[in-house]
Design a protein around this nucleic acid. Structure first.
Lengths: 153, 153
DNA sequence: TATTGTTATACTCTATAACTATA
DNA sequence: TATAGTTATAGAGTATAACAATA
């Protein structure tokens, strides 16, 4: 069986937004501890990249600097991140996740994962396997690529 | 090899948002003809479901009625949809895609597909196959399910 | 001059609450 | 009373343009 790029593109365009919609809704619905998807991604990124600058976060997330600045403002206002000056280059700042930020990041991650795990439990082991393999293949296109671009730039 | 739901959930939570980000950015960047992702989805849905009511669209998209009402307002203001009264129940309305709406829907779909096709051309046929199979497995969880829920309700 | 970041402004997405009209 | 839809209001995500501070 030959799978064309055209067919794969159609599948992506139909399925990915539907899955995303559920992830987003799930995060939004856990009201008190909620993080939006962009907030979650930013927090997770800073957690893995201690002392990241704003530009680095913006670049990773594919957002402009003003958008990222606002996003980070909110996370700081809620006490999930701290912002410090970078002494080596005073134009820059250094972001870090607070203890409270880490707590909510873990809770959010765990809540969303539990939701997905629950849905996936209703699936054949075989289909689950296909999902994981599909995601790994997508990584090569959409995640490694983004990192390479970021690095090159 | 055993794939746990936990592993599959992790993959989804990491990969799906990254792919979605690119689809979203791609649609946003084709400025003049642009449709946002929700606009695109709504237009595509009405295209396939002629005379859909607002509630049906809202239900399909997992949005509230006010949100959907606004979304549809914009599409009507831009001349992509029409809204008519439903004579059989005057609380209801009937939505339809205009010629202009169909044109932009096709252009948007084609533009985004071309972008994805281009990215996917850089992938092994084997990985492409895995992507398609993964998407088909996801459909069972995230798309059929939504339709069943919609139908039952 | 170029880079890092912020502020101002504007539009879309999204929700809840309060409302109107119809069934 | 219940359902379909709109309007009012508010907060988040996103962009571009204009700006300040530093390199």
């Amino acid at each position: 069986m030959i799978t064309t790029s055209e067919e794969a593109a159609h599948e992506l365009l139909e399925v990915v937004p539907a899955v995303m919609k559920e992830i987003r809704a799930e995060m939004r619905n856990r009201r008190t501890l909620d993080l939006t998807v962009p907030q979650f991604r930013a927090l997770a990124f800073v957690d893995k990249n201690k002392d990241a600058s704003l530009s680095v976060v913006a670049n990773h997330m594919g957002l402009t600097l003003p958008t990222t600045s606002r996003l980070i403002d909110l996370l700081i206002a809620r006490g999930f991140l701290t912002r410090e000056d970078d002494p080596s280059d005073r134009r820059r700042l250094k972001l870090a996740v607070t203890k409270r930020g880490l707590t909510i990041l873990d809770a959010s991650r765990r809540g969303t994962l539990d939701y997905l795990v629950n849905k996936l439990n209703g699936v054949d082991a075989e289909d689950r396997q296909l999902i994981v393999e599909g995601m790994k293949a997508l990584r090569l296109v959409f995640i490694n690529d983004a990192q390479i671009k970021a690095g090159v730039k």
